[in-house]
Computed example of a mutant assay.
Amino acid sequence: MAATASGVFRRTAIERSDQRVSWERTDQAFFSSGACHVLAWTCRDFYPDQDIDLAAMYLGEFERPLHVYARWGPWAFDASGWNPEAELLQVNSDFECLPVREVETISAGLREFCEKHVHRQPHQYWADPTERARAYVSRYAPPWL
């Protein structure tokens, strides 16, 4: 699957206000916008013997990251599957019409990251998305296999 901008799946007002409505979106939509950070942490945990980092993408002058994803070398994993990181950055920049200001390697744990960036922790969703994320990660063979 080609890299797709996370903004393509931006949540509507009702999806932002009703966790169940947000949960009922397709997996790609759910993990593109609203739970990308859960998917990224799950991907890293899914391959504990690989050197997978987590990254936060900042566009323009926004204080909070637009998107979070896992990365291994030149590869990035998000709701679009594995794609070259450069492509993932470009499609998001093009879609938002904003330059990538920074890609930050995340060293914090999931809880700390969520608290700092006002993201939901898994237990704060309509249902814990961790198993859904594991199933999603398992659908995509990493480029090193």
Rank of each mutant, 00 (worst) to 15 (best):
Ser138Asp: 13
Phe77Val: 06
Glu85Arg: 14
Glu96Tyr: 14
Pro74Ala: 06
Ala76Ser: 11
Tyr58Thr: 02
Gly73Phe: 04
Ser22Arg: 00
Lys116Cys: 10
Gly7Trp: 07
Val8Glu: 01
Ala127Cys: 09
Phe95Tyr: 15
Leu66Gly: 09
Arg139Ile: 02
Pro65Asn: 03
Ala133Cys: 10
Val118Leu: 10
Pro74Lys: 12
Tyr47Leu: 10
Glu131Arg: 07
Phe95Ser: 08
Leu39Trp: 03
Leu88Gly: 02
Ser32Val: 08
Ala135Thr: 08
Tyr47Val: 06
Gln124Asp: 12
Ala56Glu: 12
Ser32Lys: 06
Leu59Val: 09
Asp78Phe: 15
Trp144Lys: 11
Glu24Met: 06
Arg101Phe: 12
Ile14Arg: 03
Phe30His: 00
Leu66Met: 11
Trp82Asn: 07
Asp27Glu: 14
Arg10Met: 02
Phe77Arg: 05
Val118Phe: 10
Arg139Lys: 15
Trp82Ile: 00
Asp49Met: 09
Ile14Gln: 09
Val103Gln: 07
Ala40Asn: 04
Glu115Phe: 04
Val103Met: 11
Glu24Phe: 03
Val38Glu: 07
Ala40Lys: 05
Arg134Phe: 05
Ala76Ile: 05
Leu89Asp: 12
Ala5Ser: 15
Arg139Trp: 13
Ala141Phe: 05
Tyr140Phe: 15
Leu39Arg: 02
His117Ala: 03
Asp78Ser: 12
Trp126Ile: 02
Ser32Tyr: 11
His37Leu: 00
Pro84Cys: 02
Arg64His: 13
Tyr69Ser: 01
Glu24Gly: 01
Glu104Lys: 13
Thr4Tyr: 14
Phe9Arg: 01
Glu102His: 13
Met1Lys: 08
Glu104Cys: 06
Ser93Thr: 07
Phe77Gln: 08
Asp45Ser: 14
Glu15Val: 07
Trp82Pro: 09
Ser17Trp: 02
